[in-house]
Structure formats: structure tokens, C-alpha cells
Amino acid sequence: MSTLRVRVWRGGETGRFQEFEVPRLESQTVLDVVTYIQRSLDPTLAYRFACRVGMCGSCAMTVNGKARWTCRTHVAKVADGDRLDIAPLNHLPVVKDLVADMSVFFDKWAAAKGRFQGARTRKDDFARVPPDSRRRKLVDEAIECIGCGVCYSSCDVVSWNPDYLGPAALNRAWTLYNDVRDTGQKARLAAVAGDAGCHACHTHMSCTERCPKQLSPTAGIAGLKRAVLTAALKGEL
């Protein structure tokens, strides 16, 4: 059986990489490697996971320099020979070892008005949104976000501008902008506009390239740019 040489970040904002030797197995995921280290080599290692099947978005880490969802990332796909470097997500404070503090990430979802705001009450009938309508299709293309933070961690603009809302929050705003039931559009467009919002995006497309769900936040951000500019020209911003 061959062996993986795995360097794992230990500590908080300051710390160091600690090397472990892990047995290499067939169909082994990066999360399997981290779990092996914690259960068999060092029980003090902190990391975060829940579903293990790519639904919950809690196990994202930086693997050999790139943000990935570790539960669905096979070692064979990302290992550099027998080497694997595993660190917490970039652009977020480190709680301990591989655990990043996601507070800022989700605070920005709230700042981008990422909450549905409807006008109907429980006494009203269901809203009917035709599945093949143009705006519903736009929602479909962006709705499967699991909030893993891979896009945020991969975005250059986030590293340059700490106030930038980031791809995930803007993608969420785009899905709600295209939700015909939502009544909070004016405030949402104002929230996602300008230097800290969609107009800061340079269209590098790292978010789109790295999104494990194959979404394109870049496309949604481009849509928001157009929608906000139109609102600004009409004096509605």
C-alpha cells in the first residue's frame, strides 16, 4: 500500500503546516484523509463536515492551493504525486486548524438582501410561477448553491476589497431578483450596487471555474450589473 504525505495547517491565523503520513486507498476523498488523521493520528485536529455527500457545503478547504469541497474531491484528482497540502479556506478568519469562521461570508448574504420577501400571507393561494418562464429559468441556473464558500475563497476581488459582497451573496441576490414573487427588489438592487457590490467584479471567473455545483456566479453578477445600471439611469436607485 502506498502512502500519502499530507501537510495540514495547524493553529489559527498564525500557525504552521504539520506533516502526516496517511495510507493511500482507492476512491479516497480528501475528507477521508482528514478524517483518518483526526481519528487515527491526532484527535486534536479541528475540521468541519456534515453530510459527506456534497449537499451541506460545510467541508470546503484549500487543497493544494485551490478551494474545493473535500467530501467530493478524490485524492487521485488533486494530489501532486504523493503530496497533499490542506489548509482552511482563504479570505476568512481561521478558528482553528481547518475550520474557517464563515460569519463574514453569511453576513454578506444578509447585506445583499439575500432573504425572500413576499407579499402573500398563509391565507392566500399559492403563487404560480411557470417553470418555463424566462425569469424562472434564470433562477434555476443559479439556485443550487450550497453555501460552501469555495467561490468566495477563490475570488481575487474579495482579497483586494474586504467590503466586496462576493460571488455567493451576489448569486443569491440574483436568484431573488428573478423571483417574480419577491417585493424587495428596489432595496436589493441598492444593496448589491457600487464599489462593494456587483460593479466591483472584474469577471476573472474564478468563482465560476471553482464552483463545485457548476454554477456561474459571474453570469448572475453580470445580470445584476445591467439591472442596477438600468435602475440608476431611471433614477430608481
Binding site: 441598492a190 450596487a193 457600487g194 464599489d195 460593479h199 450589473k225 442596477v228 445600471l229 440608476a232 439611469l233 436607485l237
Partner: peptide, 9 residues
């Protein structure tokens, strides 16, 4: 914000 957006345009 409006000026920022118009500058972008």
C-alpha cells in the same frame, strides 16, 4: 451608490 453605478456605466 448611484454615482458609483453611473461611473461604472
Amino acid at each position: 451608490i448611484r454615482t458609483q453605478v453611473l461611473l461604472w456605466g
